[in-house]
Design a protein around this nucleic acid. Structure first.
Lengths: 141, 141
DNA sequence: GCTTGACTTCAAGTTAACTTGAACTTGTAG
DNA sequence: CTACAAGTTCAAGTTAACTTGAAGTCAAGC
């Protein structure tokens, strides 16, 4: 069993973040008699999954939903993990496609002078117009 | 000259956001005798640039720095705009490359079982380890 | 026995990019 | 002339993902 500092060092995730993840139900810990956290080795893979998923662009809430699909009664197998990440390929491809669209817009659109908002579909794509509710635009990408 | 509501409707950007952009120095306005904002048509292109740049992943601060490179004494030409966006292609390509790296990691890495943080370069890439200072990891991607 | 370091909880602070609300003024249609 | 929509400023709230600080407990070495 590992202490929180052990896990932090091995995962590169700060211990404050580990406590935060626990609060959010992403990881779990047992407690030593003293009340200190003790982690099984398997938590490292779970944390790796979280970090990986974040890089891809999932929110912690989404990640939590994914992790909830894992079997609770045993340490997840290789197969369990790969089932989870099956959906990600699609998501990555979508994002790549958007970036490529933006990329071609750079030459075609800004270059040609059509970047005038109402005529240019790149400047005001559907997912932009379709946003609703408050909150920073940043989170809606 | 356009009112703030005109500009908001034509750009799809809320008027509160337009005032915010002005406060940040991204756009400017003249004032009618009443104190109400009046915008020249050219502001629409400037706003389009901001929106576009955000989709690509630049922060408002970075965008402001780019916009500062435009000539202040005249309405920017097509050429002026395309000079600015010249750097973006590189940035987009880098992001696409990272996503593709992550994508192949999905099958190669999670699938094979090496997603164990210390052995897996995907779970702990260089740019991740190299982060320093406080603040949420989200902003450092 | 005592200090030092690791751990705990809980509340509050940080960041970017806005939005919302309050309190007030201006413009326009009837 | 009177509504009422649209504009203004300024302060404070919102979101996600954490970090930081306070105040206290636990463990190991000298």
């Amino acid at each position: 069993m590992l202490t929180i500092t052990d896990v932090s060092r091995r995962s590169g995730v700060a211990s404050s973040a580990l406590r935060f993840y626990e609060e959010r139900g992403l990881i779990a810990s047992e407690r030593a008699g003293s009340g200190h956290r003790r982690y099984p080795r398997s938590v490292l893979r779970r944390i790796a999954f979280v970090v990986f998923a974040q890089r891809i662009g999932l929110t912690l809430e989404e990640i939590g939903a994914e992790l909830a699909k894992l079997p609770a009664d045993r340490v997840p197998s290789r197969r369990d993990w790969s089932r989870l990440s099956g959906q990600w390929t699609k998501r990555i491809d979508q994002r790549i496609a958007e970036l490529q669209r933006l990329r071609s817009g750079l030459t075609e659109c800004i270059g040609c002078g059509c970047l005038s908002i109402d005529r240019c579909s790149l400047a005001n794509p559907a997912d932009m117009a379709g946003r609703k509710g408050p909150g920073p635009r940043y989170w809606l990408g």
